[in-house]
């Protein structure tokens, strides 16, 4: 265990602030607030029809580990015929209604707005920090913006996707596992200078 978090209860997110050598900021992490979320699953044999319907509605869904962004929606492929959708500035029930309107009755929709916390990770050393637990090749040649991976980090399941621009990733983690995930990330990112925000006083 790192001394860095010796005073932080294991049940809490580490408090926001700067960890590591002063004046360095190789990794920045920010907890994203106020996202609604839902899982979207096609009915048996209905993936093709669902994709066709959503594509016609301007949302060219892909049946694979890819992310697509559409009018405030972030749609992540998490399994065959399954997607995890995040939406900004809305509520779970409103997101379900929006998706229902888009996808019709023949899909399974489940509110997950309280199930996950989402973090945005960026900075020049973000890949080096993630490499301390993510068993995926994060080189842009192997994991480019638009790619999604559901994987496990330090015994914690995460869904990770690469965003455009300077190395930037977003990562969804189950709410009850978020403290454990940040307890893994913080000491690993601290050597590069780690700025954590959005977690309040922990």
């Amino acid at each position: 265990m790192s001394d860095l978090l010796a005073q932080v209860p294991v049940t809490r997110l580490p408090p926001e602030g700067h960890y590591g050598p002063a004046g360095t900021e190789g990794v920045r992490a920010r907890a994203l607030e106020g996202l609604a979320a839902a899982t979207l699953a096609a009915r048996k044999g209905g993936t093709g029809a669902l994709i066709a319907r959503l594509t016609a509605a301007g949302l060219p869904l892909v049946d694979g580990p890819k992310v697509l962004f559409h009018e405030g929606l972030t749609v992540l492929g998490t399994g065959p015929g399954r997607w995890l959708v995040f939406a900004e500035n809305t509520t779970g029930p409103a997101l379900l209604a929006q998706l229902r309107a888009l996808a019709g009755d023949d899909v399974a929709l489940t509110d997950q707005s309280d199930a996950n916390l989402v973090f945005e990770l960026t900075g020049p050393a973000v890949r080096d920090a993630l490499a301390k637990g993510v068993a995926l090749d994060l080189d842009p040649r192997a994991f480019a913006p638009g790619d999604v991976a559901t994987t496990v980090v330090a015994h914690v399941g995460v869904t990770l996707w690469a965003c455009e621009g300077a190395p930037t990733y977003r990562l969804a983690v189950a709410r009850s596992f978020a403290p454990a995930l940040l307890r893994w990330l913080t000491p690993g990112a601290a050597p590069f200078g780690f700025a954590l925000s959005g977690t309040g006083r922990g």
């Binding site: 694979g64 068993a135 994987t151 496990v152």
Partner: peptide
């Protein structure tokens, strides 16, 4: 087939 090559620990 969906995720690509992954560490056996995930399975």
């Amino acid at each position: 087939p969906y995720c690509g090559a992954r560490d056996a620990h995930e399975f």
